[in-house]
Amino acid sequence: MTKLFATRLALAATMMLLVTPAISAQQDDAAPPAPKPGKPINTGDVLSGELNAMKVRDVKNAGKRVAMYQITSEPRRLPAPNGLCNLETGPETFQLVTSSDAQAAQLKSFVGKEISVKVDEVACASDPGQMSEAVITKWSLIKKQ
């Protein structure tokens, strides 16, 4: 009985040694293709996506909490010299910089909804306080028909 058990155990161990390299070779072959860079976004183009709002501390205003708005979209490539913002596919999150209280109030009503903005000025995020991969400093909201 012990001989039979030992024989079966040896057979199972041998099979595992033969099967393991074949399994790891199959896993290496199934590697996903490299992601393609997003389509370019230039001045005057329209960017659409879901609008998110976050409360951040304003360093210039004595740490006061202010709303920061962000659009999450498909990956987009920025014009030179910004390019892909050191990302493989380009940025997917775009911070909307509000230049007035009127712009902030305009965005507040669209939080959590799909919006479109016409991009007038865009760059990669560079300041430590920025929560997005790219920053749109000049923009205008496009109303849906």
Rank of each mutant, 00 (worst) to 15 (best):
G129F: 04
D45Y: 06
R77T: 15
V111H: 01
Q106G: 01
I41G: 02
G49R: 03
K60T: 10
G129C: 06
N86L: 11
I41D: 04
N52Y: 09
A31F: 08
G90N: 05
L4D: 12
A13C: 06
N82G: 05
G83S: 07
G38E: 10
Q26L: 13
N82F: 15
Q27D: 05
L84T: 08
P21V: 07
S132N: 05
A13E: 09
P79D: 08
R65G: 03
T72K: 15
S24V: 09
M131G: 08
P81D: 06
A104S: 13
M1L: 12
V56R: 10
S109F: 07
I136D: 05
V19T: 13
S73G: 02
A13R: 08
I23P: 02
A31Q: 14
P91I: 02
E50S: 10
N42R: 14
Q27F: 04
A134L: 05
G63E: 12
A134Q: 03
S99P: 02
R57M: 11
A30Y: 03
E92F: 01
A10N: 08
K108E: 14
P21Q: 11
K108L: 14
G90T: 05
V19R: 11
Y69E: 01
N42P: 00
V119L: 11
P128Y: 09
N52D: 10
D127H: 14
A13F: 11
T7V: 15
S73W: 00
R57I: 01
P32L: 15
K64E: 15
N82H: 15
A53Y: 01
G63V: 07
A34Y: 08
A134G: 05
A53Q: 06
I136M: 06
T72A: 09
G49P: 03
P75L: 05
Q95V: 03
V56P: 02
P81T: 07
G63S: 09
D127G: 08
D58V: 07
P40M: 13
R8Y: 06
Q103R: 04
E121D: 15
A62L: 10
L11S: 09
